[in-house]
């Protein structure tokens, strides 16, 4: 399900792989010009604006049911459409467009919050391991390996069962699981930064460890941190959708795209658009984040990290 790091490779290799532009980056530039980064950014901004301005954009209340107009068809159908509901309604008559618009809130909220939690955990572990090395590194390595050995999806489902399904629990569970790549990358980059001459000089001058980490190391890792953040954000959004789709995530009647897919499943024969639309939204958002992240990778690398 999720693309976690690859066993059989050293952490340094994984880190390098995450940060290096893909072999396709040049080609991508040819096809999309330098616009892939821009295109990603624009789509993200658009979805972000949609989420922020949802109350203004959405024609209806996403929670308002209307059993009289259930399963209205979207505008491209010939029968049973309603101008009130351009994208139709779901099984209890809620306006689908409004639910899709509000769904952006959930996905982005999950993406950002998870990224913040996992980013914090991973960065602390990774920087500590990279900066102090030795025993600390050994312990952190063990923690990372243990985390990698856990089947994320299964354990996340179990955790949701244990603590009850809610938005908060999903965010916490994903945040506590998706820090591995942060840790691996931060560890490797901190190690490189630690050996830079001016960092050595700062140590020789007797600067305090927190000062060195914040002032000398951090500026070096921030670019890579952002790149990993985009990868994990996309990852978290996909995982939440999958969890909610199986009923182990956000609970009804919250308009989560994954949950909407779950609810639409039984109507796949007669109203396939109920399935097509939320999935397409997910796809678009994740695609945009990936394009943005790839572009960012090129920029970070050009600056020489």
């Amino acid at each position: 399900m999720t693309m976690i790091s690859t066993p059989g490779k050293s952490f340094d290799e994984i880190a390098q792989e995450t940060l290096e532009p893909s072999p396709f980056s040049k080609l991508r530039k040819r096809i999309f010009g330098n616009y892939s980064f821009l295109a990603g950014l624009i789509i993200i901004m658009a979805i972000f604006a949609m989420a922020l301005l949802a109350p203004l954009i959405a024609p209806h209340n996403p929670y308002e049911t209307d059993l009289a107009s259930r399963l209205m068809n979207p505008f491209w159908h010939e029968v049973k459409t309603d101008e009130e509901h351009p994208l139709g309604t779901d099984k209890v008559g809620r306006d689908y467009l409004s639910r899709l618009v509000y769904g952006a809130q959930i996905s982005l909220l999950i993406g950002f919050s998870t990224m913040l939690i996992s980013g914090t955990i991973g960065t602390v572990l990774g920087v500590a391991a990279g900066y102090f090395g030795g025993r600390v590194d050994m312990v952190v390595n063990f923690i990372i390996n243990t985390r990698l050995a856990m089947p994320v999806f299964l354990v996340a489902m179990a955790a949701v069962v244990a603590f009850g399904a809610s938005l908060m629990v999903v965010i916490l569970v994903l945040g506590l699981f998706l820090w591995d790549r942060f840790a691996v990358v931060m560890r490797s980059i901190t190690m490189q930064a630690r050996d830079l001459d001016y960092v050595k000089a700062a140590r020789a001058m007797g600067c305090s460890t927190p000062y060195i980490i914040v002032r000398e190391i951090f500026p070096n890792v921030i670019g890579s941190l952002t790149v990993v953040a985009t990868v994990e954000m996309a990852n978290a959004i996909l995982l939440e959708a999958a969890l909610s789709f199986l009923g182990f995530g956000v609970q009804a009647p919250t308009p989560s795209w994954g949950l909407m897919l779950n609810e639409a499943r039984e109507y796949m024969f007669f109203s396939p658009w109920l399935l097509a639309l939320p999935g397409a939204c997910l796809f678009l958002l994740v695609l945009a984040i990936n394009l943005f992240g790839d572009g960012l990778r090129d920029v970070t690398l050009e600056k020489g990290r």
């Binding site: 399900m1 693309m3 893909s22 396709f24 991508r28 996309a234 996909l238 959708a241 999958a242 789709f245 897919l261 499943r265 796949m268 396939p272 399935l275 097509a276 939320p278 999935g279 997910l282 796809f283 994740v286 695609l287 990936n290 394009l291």
Partner: peptide
């Protein structure tokens, strides 16, 4: 294939195939 493949949610792709 690579760019789109990585953004396509597995379970949604499965559902679309079923349809």
């Amino acid at each position: 294939v690579a760019v789109f493949g990585q953004a396509l949610p597995t379970f949604w792709f499965a559902l679309m195939m079923i349809i």
